[in-house]
Write a protein that binds this DNA or RNA. Structure first.
Lengths: 203, 203
DNA sequence: AAAATTACTGAACACTGTTCATTTTGTCAA
DNA sequence: TTGACAAAATGAACAGTGTTCAGTAATTTT
Protein backbone atom coordinates (compact mmCIF):
# COMPACT_ATOMS: atom_id res chain seq x y z
CA UNK A 1 0.00 0.00 0.00
CA UNK A 2 3.04 2.28 0.10
CA UNK A 3 2.63 3.47 -3.47
CA UNK A 4 -0.97 4.44 -2.79
CA UNK A 5 0.19 6.21 0.36
CA UNK A 6 2.77 8.19 -1.53
CA UNK A 7 0.19 9.08 -4.18
CA UNK A 8 -2.17 10.30 -1.50
CA UNK A 9 0.61 12.37 -0.01
CA UNK A 10 1.53 13.76 -3.43
CA UNK A 11 -2.08 14.68 -4.02
CA UNK A 12 -2.28 16.51 -0.71
CA UNK A 13 1.00 18.24 -1.46
CA UNK A 14 -0.34 19.39 -4.81
CA UNK A 15 -3.54 20.68 -3.20
CA UNK A 16 -1.48 22.57 -0.66
CA UNK A 17 0.70 23.98 -3.41
CA UNK A 18 -2.36 25.28 -5.21
CA UNK A 19 -3.94 26.70 -2.07
CA UNK A 20 -0.77 28.42 -0.89
CA UNK A 21 -0.26 30.00 -4.29
CA UNK A 22 -3.93 31.05 -4.38
CA UNK A 23 -3.74 32.61 -0.93
CA UNK A 24 -0.62 34.55 -1.84
CA UNK A 25 -2.24 35.85 -5.00
CA UNK A 26 -5.44 36.63 -3.13
CA UNK A 27 -3.63 38.75 -0.56
CA UNK A 28 -1.13 40.49 -2.83
CA UNK A 29 -3.25 41.30 -5.87
CA UNK A 30 -6.61 43.00 -5.84
CA UNK A 31 -8.59 39.98 -4.69
CA UNK A 32 -11.18 40.35 -7.41
CA UNK A 33 -8.51 39.89 -10.02
CA UNK A 34 -7.37 36.46 -8.92
CA UNK A 35 -7.74 34.02 -11.82
CA UNK A 36 -7.26 30.33 -12.46
CA UNK A 37 -4.68 31.11 -15.12
CA UNK A 38 -2.66 33.25 -12.71
CA UNK A 39 -2.71 30.49 -10.09
CA UNK A 40 -1.60 28.00 -12.74
CA UNK A 41 1.22 30.26 -13.85
CA UNK A 42 2.40 30.74 -10.26
CA UNK A 43 2.66 27.01 -9.62
CA UNK A 44 4.03 26.38 -13.13
CA UNK A 45 1.25 24.04 -14.25
CA UNK A 46 -1.34 24.42 -16.96
CA UNK A 47 -4.78 25.80 -16.00
CA UNK A 48 -6.43 22.46 -16.67
CA UNK A 49 -4.36 20.73 -13.99
CA UNK A 50 -5.99 22.70 -11.17
CA UNK A 51 -9.31 21.14 -12.09
CA UNK A 52 -7.87 17.70 -11.36
CA UNK A 53 -7.50 18.77 -7.72
CA UNK A 54 -10.41 21.16 -7.20
CA UNK A 55 -13.89 21.08 -8.66
CA UNK A 56 -13.81 24.77 -9.51
CA UNK A 57 -12.68 28.21 -8.38
CA UNK A 58 -15.36 28.46 -5.68
CA UNK A 59 -14.03 25.32 -4.01
CA UNK A 60 -10.59 26.92 -3.82
CA UNK A 61 -12.08 30.08 -2.34
CA UNK A 62 -13.95 27.99 0.20
CA UNK A 63 -10.70 26.35 1.29
CA UNK A 64 -9.06 29.77 1.61
CA UNK A 65 -12.07 30.80 3.69
CA UNK A 66 -11.34 27.88 6.03
CA UNK A 67 -7.69 28.91 6.30
CA UNK A 68 -8.80 32.45 7.13
CA UNK A 69 -11.10 31.17 9.88
CA UNK A 70 -8.25 29.18 11.39
CA UNK A 71 -6.18 32.33 11.56
CA UNK A 72 -9.01 34.26 13.18
CA UNK A 73 -9.79 31.51 15.66
CA UNK A 74 -6.22 31.63 16.90
CA UNK A 75 -6.46 35.41 17.42
CA UNK A 76 -9.81 34.97 19.14
CA UNK A 77 -8.23 32.74 21.81
CA UNK A 78 -6.29 35.70 23.15
CA UNK A 79 -9.39 36.82 25.07
CA UNK A 80 -8.93 33.85 27.41
CA UNK A 81 -6.30 35.82 29.27
CA UNK A 82 -9.06 38.12 30.59
CA UNK A 83 -11.19 36.74 33.38
CA UNK A 84 -13.91 39.35 33.94
CA UNK A 85 -16.60 38.36 31.38
CA UNK A 86 -17.58 41.80 30.17
CA UNK A 87 -14.00 43.03 29.83
CA UNK A 88 -13.31 39.81 27.98
CA UNK A 89 -16.19 40.53 25.63
CA UNK A 90 -15.01 44.08 25.09
CA UNK A 91 -11.61 42.73 24.05
CA UNK A 92 -13.32 40.08 21.92
CA UNK A 93 -15.00 42.77 19.83
CA UNK A 94 -11.83 44.78 19.52
CA UNK A 95 -9.95 41.75 18.25
CA UNK A 96 -12.69 41.18 15.69
CA UNK A 97 -12.60 44.75 14.42
CA UNK A 98 -8.83 44.85 14.27
CA UNK A 99 -8.68 41.55 12.46
CA UNK A 100 -10.95 42.94 9.76
CA UNK A 101 -8.94 46.14 9.45
CA UNK A 102 -5.59 44.35 9.30
CA UNK A 103 -6.69 41.40 7.15
CA UNK A 104 -9.36 42.72 4.81
CA UNK A 105 -8.83 39.91 2.28
CA UNK A 106 -9.32 37.24 4.93
CA UNK A 107 -12.38 39.02 6.23
CA UNK A 108 -13.74 39.20 2.70
CA UNK A 109 -13.47 35.42 2.32
CA UNK A 110 -15.00 34.73 5.73
CA UNK A 111 -17.95 37.09 5.88
CA UNK A 112 -18.55 39.09 2.74
CA UNK A 113 -17.76 37.22 -0.46
CA UNK A 114 -20.74 35.82 -2.30
CA UNK A 115 -18.90 32.87 -3.81
CA UNK A 116 -17.95 31.53 -0.39
CA UNK A 117 -21.44 32.24 0.93
CA UNK A 118 -22.93 30.00 -1.72
CA UNK A 119 -20.47 27.24 -0.86
CA UNK A 120 -21.29 27.61 2.84
CA UNK A 121 -24.97 27.18 2.05
CA UNK A 122 -24.27 24.05 -0.04
CA UNK A 123 -22.38 22.23 2.69
CA UNK A 124 -24.68 20.99 5.42
CA UNK A 125 -22.36 22.12 8.17
CA UNK A 126 -20.44 25.36 8.43
CA UNK A 127 -17.78 24.09 10.82
CA UNK A 128 -15.50 27.10 10.65
CA UNK A 129 -18.24 29.63 11.25
CA UNK A 130 -19.88 27.56 13.96
CA UNK A 131 -16.69 27.12 15.95
CA UNK A 132 -15.99 30.84 16.02
CA UNK A 133 -19.60 31.72 16.81
CA UNK A 134 -19.81 29.18 19.62
CA UNK A 135 -16.69 30.60 21.18
CA UNK A 136 -18.35 34.00 21.18
CA UNK A 137 -21.53 32.49 22.66
CA UNK A 138 -19.55 31.10 25.59
CA UNK A 139 -18.30 34.58 26.38
CA UNK A 140 -21.81 36.00 26.14
CA UNK A 141 -23.09 33.26 28.46
CA UNK A 142 -20.47 34.22 31.02
CA UNK A 143 -21.73 37.80 30.81
CA UNK A 144 -25.34 36.71 31.28
CA UNK A 145 -24.30 34.59 34.27
CA UNK A 146 -22.78 37.71 35.79
CA UNK A 147 -25.90 39.78 35.33
CA UNK A 148 -25.04 41.67 32.18
CA UNK A 149 -27.72 42.35 29.55
CA UNK A 150 -31.43 42.61 30.10
CA UNK A 151 -32.34 39.54 28.07
CA UNK A 152 -31.38 35.99 28.95
CA UNK A 153 -31.40 34.68 25.41
CA UNK A 154 -27.74 33.79 24.71
CA UNK A 155 -28.35 33.25 21.05
CA UNK A 156 -30.00 36.60 20.37
CA UNK A 157 -27.37 38.38 22.42
CA UNK A 158 -24.57 36.65 20.50
CA UNK A 159 -26.16 37.39 17.15
CA UNK A 160 -26.53 41.02 18.20
CA UNK A 161 -22.90 41.29 19.20
CA UNK A 162 -21.72 39.64 16.00
CA UNK A 163 -24.05 41.72 13.84
CA UNK A 164 -22.77 44.89 15.36
CA UNK A 165 -19.08 44.29 14.84
CA UNK A 166 -19.67 42.82 11.41
CA UNK A 167 -21.79 45.82 10.48
CA UNK A 168 -19.22 48.36 11.46
CA UNK A 169 -16.29 46.71 9.72
CA UNK A 170 -18.18 45.89 6.55
CA UNK A 171 -19.38 49.47 6.20
CA UNK A 172 -15.75 50.45 6.53
CA UNK A 173 -14.38 47.83 4.15
CA UNK A 174 -16.98 48.59 1.51
CA UNK A 175 -16.28 52.31 1.69
CA UNK A 176 -19.67 53.31 3.08
CA UNK A 177 -18.19 55.73 5.58
CA UNK A 178 -17.48 58.17 2.79
CA UNK A 179 -19.11 60.99 4.76
CA UNK A 180 -16.26 60.72 7.25
CA UNK A 181 -12.70 61.77 6.31
CA UNK A 182 -10.75 58.55 5.88
CA UNK A 183 -8.23 59.49 8.55
CA UNK A 184 -11.06 59.58 11.12
CA UNK A 185 -12.94 56.46 10.09
CA UNK A 186 -11.16 54.10 12.45
CA UNK A 187 -11.75 56.41 15.41
CA UNK A 188 -15.43 56.61 14.51
CA UNK A 189 -15.62 52.83 14.37
CA UNK A 190 -14.18 52.41 17.83
CA UNK A 191 -16.32 55.26 19.20
CA UNK A 192 -19.45 53.53 17.86
CA UNK A 193 -18.18 50.29 19.36
CA UNK A 194 -17.75 51.95 22.74
CA UNK A 195 -21.26 53.37 22.49
CA UNK A 196 -22.58 49.88 21.82
CA UNK A 197 -20.67 48.31 24.70
CA UNK A 198 -21.47 51.00 27.24
CA UNK A 199 -25.16 51.01 26.44
CA UNK A 200 -25.77 47.29 26.17
CA UNK A 201 -23.48 46.47 29.07
CA UNK A 202 -25.40 48.42 31.70
CA UNK A 203 -26.10 45.98 34.54
CA UNK B 1 -31.69 76.82 -29.47
CA UNK B 2 -34.65 74.48 -29.81
CA UNK B 3 -32.69 71.80 -31.64
CA UNK B 4 -30.08 71.76 -28.92
CA UNK B 5 -32.89 71.52 -26.37
CA UNK B 6 -34.39 68.54 -28.13
CA UNK B 7 -30.99 66.90 -28.36
CA UNK B 8 -30.48 67.38 -24.65
CA UNK B 9 -33.87 65.85 -24.01
CA UNK B 10 -33.09 62.95 -26.34
CA UNK B 11 -29.85 62.37 -24.53
CA UNK B 12 -31.59 62.25 -21.18
CA UNK B 13 -34.22 59.94 -22.61
CA UNK B 14 -31.54 57.60 -23.87
CA UNK B 15 -29.81 57.62 -20.48
CA UNK B 16 -33.11 56.81 -18.81
CA UNK B 17 -33.74 54.02 -21.31
CA UNK B 18 -30.37 52.48 -20.49
CA UNK B 19 -30.83 52.84 -16.73
CA UNK B 20 -34.35 51.43 -16.72
CA UNK B 21 -33.24 48.43 -18.76
CA UNK B 22 -30.23 47.96 -16.50
CA UNK B 23 -32.36 48.10 -13.36
CA UNK B 24 -34.80 45.55 -14.74
CA UNK B 25 -31.96 43.21 -15.65
CA UNK B 26 -30.31 43.78 -12.30
CA UNK B 27 -33.44 42.82 -10.41
CA UNK B 28 -34.62 39.93 -12.54
CA UNK B 29 -31.37 38.13 -13.33
CA UNK B 30 -28.75 37.09 -10.84
CA UNK B 31 -27.26 40.54 -10.33
CA UNK B 32 -23.71 39.34 -10.85
CA UNK B 33 -24.59 38.23 -14.34
CA UNK B 34 -25.67 41.61 -15.66
CA UNK B 35 -23.55 42.53 -18.67
CA UNK B 36 -23.18 45.45 -21.04
CA UNK B 37 -24.11 43.21 -23.96
CA UNK B 38 -27.32 42.13 -22.24
CA UNK B 39 -28.27 45.74 -21.52
CA UNK B 40 -27.53 46.61 -25.16
CA UNK B 41 -29.64 43.73 -26.38
CA UNK B 42 -32.53 44.74 -24.13
CA UNK B 43 -32.62 48.29 -25.49
CA UNK B 44 -31.90 47.08 -29.04
CA UNK B 45 -28.69 49.01 -29.51
CA UNK B 46 -25.13 47.84 -29.98
CA UNK B 47 -22.86 47.51 -26.92
CA UNK B 48 -20.68 50.40 -28.06
CA UNK B 49 -23.59 52.83 -27.94
CA UNK B 50 -23.91 52.59 -24.16
CA UNK B 51 -20.41 54.00 -23.84
CA UNK B 52 -21.58 57.19 -25.59
CA UNK B 53 -23.88 57.82 -22.62
CA UNK B 54 -21.99 56.33 -19.68
CA UNK B 55 -18.27 56.21 -19.03
CA UNK B 56 -18.38 52.56 -18.03
CA UNK B 57 -20.36 49.88 -16.23
CA UNK B 58 -19.51 51.22 -12.77
CA UNK B 59 -21.10 54.56 -13.63
CA UNK B 60 -24.32 52.76 -14.54
CA UNK B 61 -24.21 50.83 -11.28
CA UNK B 62 -23.66 54.07 -9.39
CA UNK B 63 -26.77 55.56 -10.98
CA UNK B 64 -28.75 52.48 -10.05
CA UNK B 65 -27.40 52.90 -6.53
CA UNK B 66 -28.87 56.43 -6.50
CA UNK B 67 -32.22 55.15 -7.69
CA UNK B 68 -32.17 52.54 -4.94
CA UNK B 69 -31.44 55.22 -2.33
CA UNK B 70 -34.39 57.26 -3.57
CA UNK B 71 -36.65 54.29 -3.08
CA UNK B 72 -35.31 53.68 0.41
CA UNK B 73 -35.55 57.33 1.41
CA UNK B 74 -39.26 57.29 0.54
CA UNK B 75 -39.79 54.22 2.75
CA UNK B 76 -37.78 55.83 5.51
CA UNK B 77 -40.19 58.79 5.65
CA UNK B 78 -42.92 56.51 6.98
CA UNK B 79 -41.41 56.80 10.47
CA UNK B 80 -42.62 60.39 10.61
CA UNK B 81 -46.06 59.14 11.54
CA UNK B 82 -44.68 58.06 14.94
CA UNK B 83 -44.11 60.83 17.44
CA UNK B 84 -42.42 59.13 20.41
CA UNK B 85 -38.71 59.21 19.47
CA UNK B 86 -37.72 55.75 20.64
CA UNK B 87 -40.74 54.04 19.11
CA UNK B 88 -39.97 55.96 15.95
CA UNK B 89 -36.39 54.66 16.03
CA UNK B 90 -37.61 51.11 16.62
CA UNK B 91 -39.78 51.40 13.52
CA UNK B 92 -36.89 53.00 11.64
CA UNK B 93 -34.76 49.93 12.16
CA UNK B 94 -37.55 47.58 11.21
CA UNK B 95 -38.10 49.45 7.97
CA UNK B 96 -34.38 49.18 7.24
CA UNK B 97 -34.27 45.44 7.85
CA UNK B 98 -37.43 44.78 5.87
CA UNK B 99 -36.19 46.88 2.98
CA UNK B 100 -33.06 44.73 2.78
CA UNK B 101 -35.04 41.50 2.96
CA UNK B 102 -37.55 42.57 0.35
CA UNK B 103 -35.14 44.35 -1.99
CA UNK B 104 -31.84 42.49 -1.76
CA UNK B 105 -30.66 43.78 -5.14
CA UNK B 106 -31.22 47.40 -4.14
CA UNK B 107 -29.53 46.80 -0.83
CA UNK B 108 -26.60 45.25 -2.65
CA UNK B 109 -26.14 48.38 -4.75
CA UNK B 110 -26.47 50.72 -1.79
CA UNK B 111 -24.38 49.11 0.89
CA UNK B 112 -22.52 46.00 -0.21
CA UNK B 113 -21.31 46.13 -3.79
CA UNK B 114 -17.65 46.92 -4.24
CA UNK B 115 -18.05 48.63 -7.62
CA UNK B 116 -20.43 51.23 -6.19
CA UNK B 117 -18.23 51.64 -3.12
CA UNK B 118 -15.32 52.62 -5.32
CA UNK B 119 -17.49 55.13 -7.18
CA UNK B 120 -18.73 56.57 -3.87
CA UNK B 121 -15.14 57.08 -2.78
CA UNK B 122 -14.27 58.81 -6.06
CA UNK B 123 -17.02 61.41 -5.83
CA UNK B 124 -16.28 64.03 -3.24
CA UNK B 125 -19.82 63.96 -1.88
CA UNK B 126 -22.01 60.93 -1.23
CA UNK B 127 -25.34 62.78 -1.40
CA UNK B 128 -27.58 59.74 -1.34
CA UNK B 129 -25.90 58.13 1.64
CA UNK B 130 -25.62 61.39 3.52
CA UNK B 131 -29.30 62.26 3.17
CA UNK B 132 -30.40 58.89 4.52
CA UNK B 133 -27.85 58.97 7.35
CA UNK B 134 -28.76 62.49 8.37
CA UNK B 135 -32.40 61.52 8.56
CA UNK B 136 -31.44 58.74 10.94
CA UNK B 137 -29.31 61.15 12.96
CA UNK B 138 -32.31 63.42 13.48
CA UNK B 139 -34.22 60.52 14.98
CA UNK B 140 -31.31 59.64 17.25
CA UNK B 141 -31.02 63.26 18.35
CA UNK B 142 -34.69 63.21 19.33
CA UNK B 143 -33.99 60.12 21.42
CA UNK B 144 -31.03 61.77 23.13
CA UNK B 145 -33.14 64.84 23.84
CA UNK B 146 -35.61 62.56 25.58
CA UNK B 147 -33.00 60.95 27.76
CA UNK B 148 -32.38 57.75 25.86
CA UNK B 149 -28.85 56.32 25.61
CA UNK B 150 -26.03 56.83 28.02
CA UNK B 151 -23.82 58.76 25.61
CA UNK B 152 -24.63 62.16 24.18
CA UNK B 153 -22.61 61.76 21.01
CA UNK B 154 -25.22 61.73 18.23
CA UNK B 155 -22.78 60.66 15.61
CA UNK B 156 -21.46 57.61 17.45
CA UNK B 157 -24.98 56.61 18.41
CA UNK B 158 -26.16 56.90 14.81
CA UNK B 159 -23.19 54.97 13.48
CA UNK B 160 -23.89 52.28 16.06
CA UNK B 161 -27.54 51.99 15.07
CA UNK B 162 -26.68 51.86 11.37
CA UNK B 163 -23.86 49.37 11.92
CA UNK B 164 -26.15 47.08 13.81
CA UNK B 165 -28.95 46.89 11.27
CA UNK B 166 -26.48 46.73 8.41
CA UNK B 167 -24.60 43.94 10.14
CA UNK B 168 -27.63 41.80 10.68
CA UNK B 169 -29.00 42.09 7.17
CA UNK B 170 -25.67 41.65 5.46
CA UNK B 171 -24.95 38.48 7.41
CA UNK B 172 -28.34 37.28 6.24
CA UNK B 173 -27.92 38.34 2.62
CA UNK B 174 -24.46 36.85 2.33
CA UNK B 175 -25.64 33.53 3.78
CA UNK B 176 -23.61 33.73 6.98
CA UNK B 177 -26.46 32.51 9.13
CA UNK B 178 -25.95 29.01 7.80
CA UNK B 179 -25.93 27.61 11.35
CA UNK B 180 -29.60 28.59 11.61
CA UNK B 181 -32.30 26.77 9.57
CA UNK B 182 -33.31 29.16 6.83
CA UNK B 183 -36.94 29.20 7.92
CA UNK B 184 -35.86 30.63 11.29
CA UNK B 185 -33.33 33.17 10.10
CA UNK B 186 -35.73 36.09 9.85
CA UNK B 187 -37.05 35.45 13.36
CA UNK B 188 -33.49 35.36 14.67
CA UNK B 189 -32.77 38.67 12.97
CA UNK B 190 -35.70 40.39 14.60
CA UNK B 191 -34.95 38.77 17.95
CA UNK B 192 -31.39 40.11 17.81
CA UNK B 193 -32.80 43.47 16.80
CA UNK B 194 -35.10 43.47 19.82
CA UNK B 195 -32.18 42.57 22.05
CA UNK B 196 -30.27 45.53 20.68
CA UNK B 197 -33.16 47.95 21.11
CA UNK B 198 -34.13 46.82 24.60
CA UNK B 199 -30.58 46.95 25.90
CA UNK B 200 -29.45 50.19 24.32
CA UNK B 201 -32.77 51.90 24.93
CA UNK B 202 -32.72 51.65 28.70
CA UNK B 203 -33.23 55.14 30.02
C1' DA C 1 9.39 -4.63 -23.37
C1' DA C 2 4.49 -4.03 -23.90
C1' DA C 3 0.21 -2.79 -22.04
C1' DA C 4 -2.57 -0.28 -18.97
C1' DT C 5 -3.21 3.41 -15.96
C1' DT C 6 -2.61 7.92 -14.32
C1' DA C 7 -1.17 12.85 -14.87
C1' DC C 8 -0.94 16.75 -17.49
C1' DT C 9 -1.53 19.84 -21.35
C1' DG C 10 -3.32 23.56 -24.06
C1' DA C 11 -6.53 24.64 -27.55
C1' DA C 12 -11.32 25.60 -27.74
C1' DC C 13 -15.91 27.41 -26.06
C1' DA C 14 -18.71 30.85 -24.40
C1' DC C 15 -18.48 34.51 -21.94
C1' DT C 16 -16.80 39.45 -19.92
C1' DG C 17 -15.72 45.09 -20.29
C1' DT C 18 -14.01 48.33 -23.37
C1' DT C 19 -12.17 50.72 -27.64
C1' DC C 20 -12.29 52.70 -32.16
C1' DA C 21 -12.19 52.72 -37.33
C1' DT C 22 -16.00 52.60 -40.17
C1' DT C 23 -20.68 53.35 -41.53
C1' DT C 24 -25.16 55.43 -41.00
C1' DT C 25 -28.08 59.18 -39.83
C1' DG C 26 -29.19 64.00 -39.05
C1' DT C 27 -28.55 69.04 -39.78
C1' DC C 28 -27.96 73.14 -42.39
C1' DA C 29 -26.34 76.35 -45.90
C1' DA C 30 -26.18 77.02 -50.89
C1' DT D 1 -32.73 69.32 -53.62
C1' DT D 2 -27.99 68.69 -53.30
C1' DG D 3 -23.56 68.61 -51.11
C1' DA D 4 -20.84 69.21 -46.93
C1' DC D 5 -20.24 68.70 -42.41
C1' DA D 6 -21.27 66.86 -37.80
C1' DA D 7 -23.24 63.71 -34.78
C1' DA D 8 -24.69 59.04 -33.62
C1' DA D 9 -24.40 54.20 -33.89
C1' DT D 10 -22.14 50.09 -35.16
C1' DG D 11 -19.68 45.75 -34.54
C1' DA D 12 -15.34 43.69 -35.04
C1' DA D 13 -11.25 43.37 -32.30
C1' DC D 14 -8.48 43.12 -27.89
C1' DA D 15 -7.39 41.19 -23.75
C1' DG D 16 -9.19 39.01 -20.31
C1' DT D 17 -12.41 35.33 -17.57
C1' DG D 18 -13.95 30.02 -15.88
C1' DT D 19 -14.23 25.57 -17.57
C1' DT D 20 -13.93 21.32 -20.57
C1' DC D 21 -11.81 17.57 -22.94
C1' DA D 22 -9.31 15.19 -26.79
C1' DG D 23 -4.68 14.25 -27.11
C1' DT D 24 0.00 13.60 -25.27
C1' DA D 25 3.41 12.32 -21.74
C1' DA D 26 4.84 9.95 -17.72
C1' DT D 27 4.37 6.28 -14.55
C1' DT D 28 3.07 1.76 -12.96
C1' DT D 29 1.80 -2.98 -13.74
C1' DT D 30 1.90 -7.10 -16.24
Amino acid sequence: MSIKDRKDRDREKMKKLILDASLKLFISEDYSRISMRKIAEKIEYSPGTIYLYFKNKDEILYELHNMAFDKFYREQQKVNSIKEPFEKLREHGKIYINFAINNPEYYELMFIMNATGIEIEKKSNWYAGKRTFEFLMQNIQECLDNGYFKSHDVFSASMAMWSFVHGIVSLYLRKRMAMIPSENQKDVMFAAYEFFMINTGKK
